[in-house]
Amino acid sequence: MYINRHIIWNVFFACLLLTLSFRGSAQQETSYIAGVDTNYIKTYPDQLPVRFFFSQKFTAIELGSSELVKNLRYRPNTTLNIGIGATYRMFTLNLAYGFPFMNQDKDKGETKYLDLQSHIYPRNWTIDFNGQLYKGYFLFPRGFANADPDKFYVRPDVGVSLFGITLYNMFNGARFSYKAGMVQTEWQQKSSGTFLIGGEIYGGSFSGDSALVPSMLKDQYSQKDVEKIRFFELGPGGGYAYTLVIKKHFFIMGSLTVNFDVGYSREYYPDKTKDQWSLRPNLLYRGVVGYNSRLWNLNLSLVGNQVAVRGASSTDLYYFRTGNLRLTLAKRVTPGPKLKKRLNVFGPNQ
């Protein structure tokens, strides 16, 4: 079975965080406000974090085959965006745009896409919605599968659709906060971690007008004649998340969950189809490093996942990798009475 090196590093990182979480601590008096241990987390339920950010989303595809050849890595030419946003209690709104002067990679072709990623963090839960529609990809690195070593192999006909929901319960939501790094509505003041248990459902497709494997590489990959694959997967999973706080203000947060999904896939050939049932592990990960204080939050974050799909052959592997890389500067402000009255329509803080 092929094991991607990124999986090894992610599992190692999760084990390291798990080890750190069991360090001894002195006895202290514990106080709770709305289910939060105030010795660990400072909440700002009536404040409005406003943010300025740079972000780049992606949905990349890899075709895996024999260990003797490297994966085919299809990547989209997505834009680097500048955005603004705000969060009040459970509601977040971000608006971003990729200005032409920041995106000049014309040699990678054009990608048209709609990428809807929503990540919601109630007190003891994480909820993730993914909806991606992409058209237009290139092969990485430059020159791979191309007669000209200075040009990318571009496939404007290749498209991806991916839809999924993940739901996880946190065992220690009173002392661990995703919100502190991801939406800046809280401040994690002491190191803490939590186990996670839940599940996911995913479905999607990957297709082109002709074979997905370039003709000059067709003898190296078992998917050489596949023009399209559709799949559906669901299953349970578990994981761990931990935030290391340094001198109260600096923090490193890492989170990893592993799902064991039962999946059904169908590969489409020019003259036939092949179906397959399988059991494959999928990954969902988050990482944030930054600075937090009473008013300001500066961080670099990455939220991503890997959905693994098996084709008709044991070597026919397809990896759907999505993510959102973001650099954020946020400030918490207190809304005025009139604005606060209007914002209360979004419900209580959780």
Rank of each mutant, 00 (worst) to 15 (best):
Cys15Asn: 10
Arg332Gln: 04
Lys179Gln: 12
Gly35Leu: 05
Pro236His: 10
Val36Gly: 05
Asp225Ala: 07
Asp115Ser: 13
Ile229Asp: 01
Gly263Gln: 01
Arg230Ile: 07
Phe54Arg: 07
Pro337Thr: 04
Lys190Glu: 14
Lys341Ile: 06
Met90Arg: 13
Leu68Gly: 14
Asn282Tyr: 08
Thr273His: 07
Thr243Gln: 03
Gly35Tyr: 05
Arg5Tyr: 14
Pro156Val: 09
Val36Leu: 08
Asp225Lys: 05
Phe195Leu: 15
Gly181Asn: 05
Ser21Gln: 05
Leu212Gln: 01
Ala96Arg: 06
Gly136Thr: 05
Ala241Cys: 10
Asn305His: 10
Lys57Ala: 07
Ile120Trp: 15
Phe171Gly: 11
Ala145Val: 06
Arg342Pro: 04
Ala26Asp: 15
Lys108Gly: 05
Tyr168Trp: 05
Asn39Gly: 14
Gly35Phe: 05
Phe129Asn: 11
Gly85Arg: 03
Asp157Leu: 04
Tyr121Gly: 04
Val307Ala: 06
Pro45Cys: 09
Gly199Met: 11
Phe140Pro: 00
Gly235Ala: 12
Gly287Val: 12
Lys247Thr: 11
Phe232Ile: 13
Pro122Lys: 10
Val345Asn: 08
Tyr202Leu: 10
Ile82Asp: 01
Tyr88Ile: 03
Lys190Met: 08
Phe206Glu: 01
Gln117Ala: 13
Phe195Val: 09
Asn4Trp: 05
Leu68His: 12
Glu186Ala: 04
Val160Met: 04
